[in-house]
Design a protein around this nucleic acid. Structure first.
Ligand SMILES: [Zn+2]
Ligand SMILES: [Zn+2]
Ligand SMILES: [Zn+2]
Ligand SMILES: [Zn+2]
Lengths: 142, 142
DNA sequence: CTGGCCATTGATAATGATTCTCATTATTTA
DNA sequence: TAAATAATGAGAATCATTATCAATGGCCAG
């Protein structure tokens, strides 16, 4: 994402644009998907060693609250962050190498809605992750 | 679960039956579903104040490894445990009161398999949780 | 019996990700 | 520009879970 766009995005959301927030957002958006906080922190530090860990967490929280970032949890004890996409997607995770694929199956989404309705719930979120071994890892095990 | 059955179950799995393990397993099985470790610990302590927290964790791990217990994670920072059921199920969680409903939709299960196959993954597990507000919580908010 | 071996246990320290605190700075407001 | 407000960095605190380690308890070879 271009710097100018980050500036604009933060401004649109009413987020005070500070140097730290710019760097953190820009770094996250340039790192691809499913990035952990400590991973992000170490890259951010390379650009500006003065930025603290707490600020990375605070900024991630802020971006999440403003709908710019999605928080994921693949069950390995640390949260992952990715830029919020226009389209929803779920995840397929390799339990050997950590590779993550994304997918979206509208039929599954609809069936989830239906289940929630049947049970009297007003569904506001869901979480669907498939865990297994990717092709590469299977071939290497042979 | 009856005491005799626990004894038998542990024995079948080759788990050395100790007093602690019997009490922990029996307590968990009698507490219903989706129980947290500390919650379990506090009930276990009532039966035998000498049992330590570490033993509760160790036993849960043991029961899980032997397929007697399933570990769940509803994203609130603590793991939940429930006796492993003969049939698979997924969860619907109220984000206000914590109520948990279970469901199983064979079509969703099949579609998951299909996605994994398409992406070249050998799926060994999955996780599907729906989050929302249950009927009761919605009515109370009015 | 009976001393030794090995699994289990309980108390407590350690871990690791995340959050909190608070004194210091930066930004906004008037 | 000065006061008011918000953000930051360093490090302490939290909280669930694991690891450590000395003590305990069976169980078996002799
Ligand atoms: Zn892989
Ligand atoms: Zn993703
Ligand atoms: Zn509810
Ligand atoms: Zn369940």
């Amino acid at each position: 994402m271009k710097t100018a766009n980050i500036e604009k995005t933060l401004h649109e959301k009413g987020i005070t644009p500070t140097m730290q927030r710019r760097i953190i957002a820009q770094t996250l958006f340039s790192m691809g998907k499913h990035v952990g906080a400590s991973e992000l922190y170490s890259i951010v530090r390379q650009k500006n060693p003065g930025i603290g860990f707490a600020t990375v967490y605070r900024t991630l929280q802020l971006l999440k609250e403003n709908g710019l970032v999605e928080q994921r949890d693949f069950g390995d004890g640390k949260k992952r962050y990715e830029r919020r996409d226009e389209t929803h997607h779920d995840h397929l995770v390799c339990i050997n190498c950590g590779k993550v694929e994304e997918f979206d199956v509208p039929v599954i989404e609809r069936l989830q809605e239906e289940v929630a309705r049947e049970k009297g719930f007003n569904m506001v979120d869901h979480r669907l992750e498939l865990y297994g071994y990717c092709k590469k890892c299977r071939e290497e095990k042979e």
